[in-house]
Design a protein around this nucleic acid. Structure first.
Lengths: 255, 255
DNA sequence: CCTCTAACTTTGTCGGACAAAGGGACAGAA
DNA sequence: TTCTGTCCCTTTGTCCGACAAAGTTAGAGG
C-alpha cells in the first residue's frame, strides 16, 4: 500500500545555509543593491542570532558565488557577479567532464558567429576603437605566440561585448577560456600563423565597421578553421580537454 | 605627480583560501577523482595543520563551487559539478545584470538552433525515446500551462543532450532557465498556445528522427517565435529580466 | 545469520580568545 | 600646510575547547 502523502519534507537546512540564503534573497530581489554594504560580521551575528563562525561559513558561500565581496578594507558589500569568474567555474566543470576539443570547436563556431553578427549589427564607435587598439597591440607582438594568444582572447571578448548581448557574452566565455591556452600552440605550429591571425582580426574589424555581415561570418569561420588546422597538427579534435590546461586557467584567474 | 608603479600588490591569501585551493588543485588535476572521499574535517585539520573552523570555511567554498559534496552521511567526497547548479548561478548573474528578454531571445535563438542541428546529426535511439516520452507527457498536460511549461523546459534540455555536445548543453542552460518561468504566461496568453507548443515538439522529434536539418531549424525558429509573440502580448522584449523571476528559480533550485 | 543496542565518530553550532591589519583622530615635524 | 608617526578602536582571520544531534561500527543476544 502506498503511503499517504500527508506531510511535505520540512526544510531543515543548516544555519549557515539559511544565513547565505537570506542574504542572497535580499540581493537578488533588489532590496540590497550592488555596492551596498552588508555590515560587519558582528552586525550579522546580532541580526541572525547565530555564532560568528556560522555567519562566516555563510559568507564564504556567498563570496564564492560572487554575490558579495570584501573591498580593500575587507568590509563586505554586495556586488554584481563578474562574468569571467563565473565562466572560469564553468570552464573548470567542462574540464572535469572531459569535454572534447570537437565539442569546444563546434560550440564556439556557433557562439562566435553569433557574436560577430551581433557586433556587425550593433557595435558602437567605442567598441570599434577598443578593437582597433587591440589590433595595434596584436600587430606589435605578432612574433610572440604567448602574447598574441592573449591578444586573441581579448579580441573575441571585445567582439562579444560589441554585440551588446550579455547573454551571448556569458555563454561564449567558458569555451573561450578553454581555447585560449591552445591558441599559443596552434599559432606556433603553423607557418605564418601569427600574421594570419592578425589579418583575420583586421578583416573582422573591417566587417564590423562596414556592417558587412557576410564578411564577418566568413572571416570568423576562417579564423576558427585556422585554429582547427593548427590544432589538428598537434592532436586529435576528439581528445578531451585535459587537466593540464586548468593549471594555466587557474593561475590566470586570481588576477 | 603620479606614483611610480614599482611594486605589484603581493598575494597573501588567507588560510581557508589556501586550503580550498589546495583541495581544488588535487581535484582539477585529477589526483582526486570524482567520487573519491576527501576525508573527515579532523583529517584535514591534521593534514593542513590549521583549525577546524578554517577547514570548514575552505570546505564551504568548494561546496559552493560544486567540486565537493556531502553524501547522505555528510561525509565529504569529490564530485563532478552539476550543470544545472552552475547554470542557476549564471541565471542569477544575468538577472542581477538586468539583461533584457531581447538578449535572452536572441541568444537562445542561436543556441537552440545549434542544439537541434547537433541533435539532428547525432541523436541516438535512446535520445529519441526520451523525447517521445516527454512528448507523451506534454500531450497529457496540454491544458495546464504550468505543467506544460515544465515539460517544454525539459524537452529542450533533452534536445541539447541529444546534440552530444556538452559545451552547448551548458551554454544554453542559463538562458533557458530564465525562459522557463515565462513560458507558462506566453502559453496562457495565446489562443491554441498549448497545442501549438506540442505540435512544434512533435515536428522537432520528427525532424530529428528523419535527420532533417532544415525542418529542425525551421521548427525551432517557429517555436521560439511563438514564444516571442506570446511574450510581446504581455510585455516589451526590451524589459529586463526581473527580480521576481529569481524567486521562482530559487525555489526550484534546491531539489 | 539477523536484529538491537551501546559505544564511538563526525558534523553543526556555540562561546570565548587573541594577533594583525585597517581607520580615524591627533600631535608634532618639515 | 602637508606629511608623518602614534594611539586607540574596530574588524577580520585564526585558534581553542565544548556539546548535542546524527550517523557509524561493533558486539550482545536472539
Amino acid at each position: 500500500m502506498p503511503i499517504a502523502p500527508l506531510f511535505r519534507p520540512i526544510d531543515v537546512a543548516p544555519a549557515y545555509q539559511k544565513v547565505a540564503d537570506a542574504i542572497e534573497r535580499e540581493i537578488v530581489n533588489g532590496r540590497i543593491k550592488p555596492g551596498d554594504p552588508i555590515g560587519t560580521e558582528h552586525d550579522l551575528v546580532r541580526q541572525f542570532g547565530v555564532n560568528r563562525s556560522t555567519i562566516r561559513e555563510g559568507i564564504r558561500v556567498l563570496e564564492e558565488g560572487g554575490l558579495i565581496r570584501r573591498d580593500s578594507s575587507r568590509r563586505l558589500h554586495a556586488c554584481l557577479p563578474r562574468y569571467s569568474k563565473l565562466a572560469s567555474r564553468l570552464s573548470r566543470a567542462l574540464v572535469l567532464h572531459e569535454v572534447t576539443f570537437r565539442e569546444l570547436y563546434e560550440a564556439s563556431m556557433t557562439l562566435e558567429v553569433a557574436s560577430i553578427e551581433g557586433a556587425v549589427e550593433r557595435a558602437t564607435e567605442a567598441n570599434v576603437a577598443e578593437l582597433d587598439d587591440n589590433l595595434v597591440r596584436s600587430e606589435a607582438v605578432v612574433g610572440d605566440p604567448a602574447a598574441l594568444a592573449e591578444c586573441d582572447a581579448e579580441f573575441h571578448v571585445l567582439v562579444a561585448k560589441a554585440s551588446q548581448n550579455r547573454v551571448l557574452q556569458l555563454a561564449r566565455e567558458p569555451a573561450a577560456q578553454l581555447f585560449y591556452p591552445t591558441t599559443e600552440m596552434t599559432v606556433t605550429g603553423v607557418a605564418e600563423g601569427g600574421p594570419r591571425l592578425v589579418a583575420a582580426h583586421r578583416h573582422l574589424i573591417d566587417a564590423i565597421r562596414r556592417r558587412d555581415r557576410e564578411a564577418g561570418v566568413l572571416w570568423t569561420r576562417r579564423h576558427l578553421q585556422d585554429w582547427r588546422r593548427g590544432f589538428e597538427k598537434i592532436a586529435s579534435l576528439d581528445r578531451s580537454v585535459e587537466h593540464m590546461y586548468m593549471e594555466h586557467a587557474q593561475a590566470t584567474r586570481r588576477r
